[in-house]
Computed example of a mutant assay.
Amino acid sequence: MDLRRRVTGIVLSFSVFAIPAAHGQGLTFALISKSLQDANFIAAARGCEQAASEDGNHCVHVGPKGAAHFRNQDLAIRHLLERDVDGMALSVTNGEYLARKSLAQVAERNIPLITFDSDLPDDLHSLRQAYVGPDNAEIGRQLGRIVNLFMDGGTLCLMSASPFDTNLNERLLGVRQALTGDPTPDEPGLLTGENGWTETGRCPWYNADDKSRAVTQVFTAYTYEHSDAIVSVGAWPLLDHNRLRSALAPFRDQLRSREKLFILATGGLRPQDTALMNEGLIQGFVSIDFEAMGRASYEVLKRLHEGRAVKEYWPTPVIPVLPGPASVSLDEPAPE
């Protein structure tokens, strides 16, 4: 194979994304996710399309195939720019990179752009008209409050996907804020004894959206890092359910007695997720409503297309889920 054919093949392997053929009548908006295969983004796309179809419009799901990566997401946006769309909703991977690349072209063409799930960094907010989704720092604080229900201090391993994801970094910050009781907006470094919490040596761990790697990291954190608590700011370990159950088996008694903790943020809970919690292998979840996020994204894009004013922040539901009847509020105490 000559060099030209090889290069063409490489480009196509990144740029052939699931962009449907042009629809008939009505507006077409694009929901640009981090990965087309991620169940949470599939739920968001479903909510967006359901809301759009009620008005005779359409919401197409666009993004990289396989694991999330900002370069592949940038290529997906560039490919989308070859089509006529009436607005875009983007879950941001690496905001600095996207701003220099495809988002500059989006701005030049005056295409309405909002973010959902994961926002652009503060200094790039001018590139989008609104953010739709949860307060990601609050998701982290909710995760930290669940930890505080069961443990007063110890060793901690935080788990994430990538150091470039704005929303995930905000969740890591929120966990640390809740555990230390420090509400300051500046991101602290690794916990080294603050309020009794110390992050173990190789954490936070990044799994690059690899569910198998995430499960291996869970096992390693308990076995070799001697972590008392693991907090995953996303659902990656849950996606390899059978391996996760096997990885947690050696620690079953300690998890059930809450000598060790395993707490995660996720989308809608599946029966197998609830089963792990009911068995005592997971102590709690923070559940994020992605369908509601998709519906709200469509509503904001429609309003922008109509020339109507929109709020800069459109919050969507976040629900803490604990085993048994909820007996303790995870809300912050009211000011005295």
Rank of each mutant, 00 (worst) to 15 (best):
M1V: 09
D2W: 03
R6C: 10
I10V: 15
A22M: 09
A30L: 03
L31M: 15
K34Y: 00
L36V: 09
L36G: 04
A44F: 11
A51T: 13
A52F: 11
A52G: 07
D55Q: 11
G56A: 09
L75F: 13
R83H: 15
A89F: 07
Y97L: 11
L103E: 02
Q105N: 08
A107T: 09
D117F: 04
L120G: 06
H125W: 02
Q129F: 13
Y131G: 05
I146N: 06
M151N: 14
T155P: 00
C157I: 04
P163R: 12
T166G: 03
R171N: 06
L179H: 05
T180I: 00
P183T: 15
L190H: 04
L190A: 12
T192M: 10
G196P: 07
S212T: 04
T216W: 09
V218K: 10
V233Q: 14
A235K: 12
A235V: 00
P237I: 07
R245Y: 11
L264P: 05
D273W: 08
T274F: 01
A275T: 15
A292D: 05
R295D: 08
L304M: 00
E306C: 01
R308F: 09
V321H: 09
A326D: 13
A326F: 05
P333K: 13
P335Y: 12
